[in-house]
Amino acid sequence: MLEARLVQGSMLRKVVDAVKDLVSDANIDVSSSGFSLQAMDTSHVSLIAMHLRADAFEHFRCDRPMSMGMSLANLAKVLKCAGSDDIVTLKANDDGDTVTFMFESPKEDRVSDFELKLMDIDSEHLGIPDTDYCATVTMPAGEYARICKDLSSIGDTVVISATKDGVKFTTSGDVGTANVTVRQNTTADKKEDQTIIDLKEPVALTFALRYLTSFAKATPLATHVTLSMTRELPVMVEYAIQDMGHLRFYLAPKIED
């Protein structure tokens, strides 16, 4: 039996809205540690890894680990029916082929439930080792989203280079070229305006902008985004889900052949 009650149900909707265009179907794995989701996009160039800890839920019961295969588009449709302040409760039987979502308004004067059919999805799981990245950039999520949007109008490939001065995003295309440099800023009055760069050694990597732009759909989740880079490794783009967990995106670099 699975029963999980999330007071801030809107977080679930923000997570699904952030990933549903990248991955269409995915297995949500539930265990005593919480909810996890790992899936690659169809081109196997990018990957999402989400974790919501069990202690994020007001009530969490998971008698035995289970994997719930879902269409993320259908899940998004169901979550769209929840009020932004609703409490969301998920229920599923161990051998069930459906999962039920219950939405309760804060004043408990409106309760609705939606039953979603589960699917059999055979997903390939990648082992992602903990990496001691050469460069870690924490910047305002809105700033990252704006850079992706602006540069996408100029080119489709971006070189991200992190040095001690800051992190530079460079692109070029038929229109011309563009550079955006974001400098370390640890003195901004508001914490959410700060940019923090932890550099072990300079690194520059090349990526397809359309994936980085897609990751920015997670902007409503958090005030900051963290980019972690190491030579010749995928970049990790991470949004914290408040203090409940994280939504991570990995993107394989483009390397001179």
């Binding site: 081109s43 196997h44 160039v45 992602i128 490939t157 090349t206 990995y250 394989a252 483009k254 390397i255």
Partner: peptide, 14 residues
């Protein structure tokens, strides 16, 4: 022009 890699070149299936 740089070639797009795939994740399996960096991470192993488990």
């Amino acid at each position: 022009t740089p070639m797009q890699n795939h994740l399996e070149e960096f991470y192993s299936l488990c």
